[in-house]
Design a protein around this nucleic acid. Sequence first.
DNA 1: TAAAAATACTCCATAGGTATTTTAT
DNA 2: ATAAAATACCTATGGAGTATTTTTA
Lengths: 293, 293
Amino acid sequence: MELRHLRYFIAVAEELHFGKAAERLHIAQPPLSQQIQQLEAELGVKLFHRKTKRQIQLTEAGKVFLQEAYQLLVQLETAVALTQRIGRGQTGQLRIGFTSLAIYNLLPSILRQFRKQFPEVELVLLELTTSQQEQALKDSLIHVGFAHPPLEDDTISYKCIYRESLVVALSSTHSLAQQEYISVLSLLHEPLIVFPRYLAPGLYDRIMSIFEQRNFKPNITQEAIQMQTIIGLVSAGMGVAITPSTLENLQRSGVAYRPILEEVPVIETAVIWQENSLTPIVENFLQFSQKFI
Amino acid sequence: MELRHLRYFIAVAEELHFGKAAERLHIAQPPLSQQIQQLEAELGVKLFHRKTKRQIQLTEAGKVFLQEAYQLLVQLETAVALTQRIGRGQTGQLRIGFTSLAIYNLLPSILRQFRKQFPEVELVLLELTTSQQEQALKDSLIHVGFAHPPLEDDTISYKCIYRESLVVALSSTHSLAQQEYISVLSLLHEPLIVFPRYLAPGLYDRIMSIFEQRNFKPNITQEAIQMQTIIGLVSAGMGVAITPSTLENLQRSGVAYRPILEEVPVIETAVIWQENSLTPIVENFLQFSQKFI
DNA sequence: TAAAAATACTCCATAGGTATTTTAT
DNA sequence: ATAAAATACCTATGGAGTATTTTTA
């Protein structure tokens, strides 16, 4: 049995007239009769009463088979449509890793607009450090990540989508806040609030390198495991922090951000993925993300 | 798209090897490759990753389509099986009319054994008089009936399956119960209990004809609309009744049944149906019923 | 007599076969 | 060197067409 038999049967069952059904199917009447006979022979059951050659009528079995045939063709259409949507990356699940820093720069607007363009794609977000994301990619726990180069594993592909400099965050009542630019030297004896190294070794090391390059030793007084907490402590006058400039988006009152006078390392945010497990959704997402650069 | 494409796709998806799949399908490998390519072209979606020619792998879309293809083929099988069962009269609904008399002779055992042989056929029973059954057949409210000739409508087919004579039912303490046969004359002044004519005109008229033929006038004292009630009244000594012999099956204590000495009309029970609306179930049932003659 | 399905046959599109190439272990 | 899929080309089955017959309203 082939789908052709179902399609032909439906046409005849609806028209109850071989000639008209054949016309509708754009074939001649005799082959249609033959195909229906074939179908009946294969089923071992008559689908039409043919008491006379003038008019035909569905048998009980035919009525039931008609309903089943409808369902089958509908299910086929549905299956095809679903497969196509998946094949085009328009539906399915996308698991995204992100660092606590990435959530402050491009990620929110990328997600917002991606959801608008691909509303059927379910986005699952997991906050992970850069190296956790690398592992998660290899374990296929996430499809893409938003992390910060350099990567440990060179089999992972990445594309930098955002670069930002480090700035000084300090209480707006702090005397240094008067200056347009702040020099590293002037921070030397300020109490420094930092993110713990294990949560963002890349960021931590870059901040420290500012001091190390100059053989300074910073005065670390506090650690906080959330960006918001660091800014809160700054606002409370507990010290100053060196943060990526996107943290300015927090718009916390009582906190001023000032660029650093000297040349300091740049913090990069990159989309990372595994080239050998590119699904259409991931491809769509990567293409989409790169329009944001 | 044809079912062939689904069947071939399933084979390749399961084997993940065109050569083995082709072997399983008893075709050569190249046409299989072609059919899969056709399928992918029609869907507009790749179903297999063919990074290398050494090994293939299902894409996300392919995984989903595989599940859908399974479902489709299962649903097809189910549909075919159901259609065949219906076409062979092994499943469906059979609506049966019967008279209150028919329920005492062959009907119960016919139903019991038919149910055993065709357990999936739903039997719907409707108690109707003979003429109600004729109308119900024409209105397609019932498929077959158990009724009593003669029929009013000669377009209805019937086949007599049971013949029984009329007997006298009387209290076992009644003096006539001493006799082996009872003559019509001896009943003349006995109080007669009858079934109302509108419920069974054929039966009523035959009982009356026994008296009319001899220009007797029976002494009707009671009517009862249920067979059981008539026998109950007989048992209570309220009178005698003339009933079809199968009523003896009621086995009511205190009631004796005696044949009538003279020749009296015979009561026939027939299966009745409409020849031009024979479905397989009805055919099976008729064939089955006639084995009981 | 006309209309509709079935039958008989003919033809060609295409499913499937054979031979070969390509490509990656 | 081998195994596997793809490609090229050929063959032949069977789906579809044309002509005709059968049947009944």
